[in-house]
């Protein structure tokens, strides 16, 4: 059973599951700009803008974000994607989606981010981005979380995966797990805050002391937002951050080992998009002919 046989000791860093190329990197960076604007709209919006009505902005920006997500994914897989990466993306999204209902409702317990952080770390930034978005999308399809917030959630989770893939490569062993646990806590907390920021006017309505006031000075709105966050979701966000960190600390080492084993067995091939597909395939997959 040699194909499933002992995994050879390969280089510590296997090929990333989705290779970032120049155009896809550009699309990814630009999408971050769009996303940033969409998440921070209450702080950026001009007083007279049509978007200032609290309930419409998330819907319209959500639609824009959904389209941007689709386009970025197209750019990521332009020219083809290794079938193993497709299958792995599907299976890991399923793992995330299967964990999500387990944790939904229990005060911020979100195990999804553990999967995203570890997956992004081992399989690369591009894969982490795709994994974050598909995991949240699939779990929304399965458990009923489709709504205007879905594109925001998908983009937020995609960033969590992307960031994990961009962390410094050097740390190994306990240090690596500690770094990932720390990153996971920060990223999960930032995710909650960002979601809060973009949906704060939507959730709270307009007639409380903590509500968003369009066009008010940045500092004022920020203070109201902080108060709102502290009053409502702080516990959840902290809970999510703690669960993610604890999850990474508990299963980090064995799961990283598993993912590395899978990645080195998979030998991802990202076919060159334009020319000489066969040659590239052979070189990257380690397949040679004598």
């Amino acid at each position: 059973m040699s194909p499933r046989g002992r995994a050879p000791d390969r280089a510590q860093w296997p090929e990333p599951a989705i290779q970032l190329r120049s155009w896809s990197t550009a699309a990814l960076a630009l999408s971050c700009a769009v996303g940033l604007a969409a998440f921070c709209w209450p702080l950026l919006v001009a007083p007279g803008a049509g978007l200032a009505h609290a309930t419409d902005a998330p819907l319209i920006l959500g639609a824009v974000l959904a389209c941007v997500l689709v386009v970025v994914h197209l750019a990521l897989v332009d020219g083809g994607m290794d079938v193993k990466a497709v299958a792995l993306l599907g299976l890991l999204s399923a793992v995330g989606a299967a964990l999500r209902p387990l944790s939904a409702g229990t005060a911020g317990v979100e195990l999804v981010f553990t999967v995203l952080v570890l997956g992004g770390r081992v399989l690369g930034a591009g894969f982490g981005f795709a994994l974050g978005a598909t995991t949240l999308g699939v779990s929304a399809l399965l458990t009923g979380g489709v709504g205007p917030w879905l594109p925001f959630q998908m983009l937020g989770a995609a960033w969590v995966g992307l960031g994990a893939g961009l962390l410094p490569r050097a740390p190994r062993g306990r240090l690596e797990v500690a770094m990932l646990a720390g990153y996971g806590a920060v990223a999960a907390f930032a995710y909650g805050t960002a979601m809060n920021l973009s949906f704060w006017p939507f959730t709270l309505g307009a007639d409380t002391a903590l509500s968003f006031v369009p066009g008010a000075p940045l500092g004022d709105n920020l203070r109201r937002l902080l108060a709102f966050t502290a009053a409502t979701s702080l516990g959840w966000d902290l809970g999510r951050a703690v669960t993610t960190a604890v999850g990474v600390a508990l299963v980090g080492a064995p799961v990283i080992a598993l993912l590395r084993r899978a990645a080195s067995r998979a030998r991802f091939v990202t076919p060159e998009p334009r020319h000489a597909e066969h040659r590239a395939t052979r070189r990257a997959s380690g397949a040679t002919f004598e």
Partner: peptide
């Protein structure tokens, strides 16, 4: 084989979306 124009077109689409979003926010 794939088409060379796909990458630029998609990156351009996101760029346009970014400009559009800032336009929306700026009223």
């Amino acid at each position: 084989p794939g088409d060379r124009r796909v990458g630029p077109a998609l990156a351009g689409a996101v760029l346009a979306a970014a400009v559009g979003t800032y336009g929306l926010l700026a009223g």
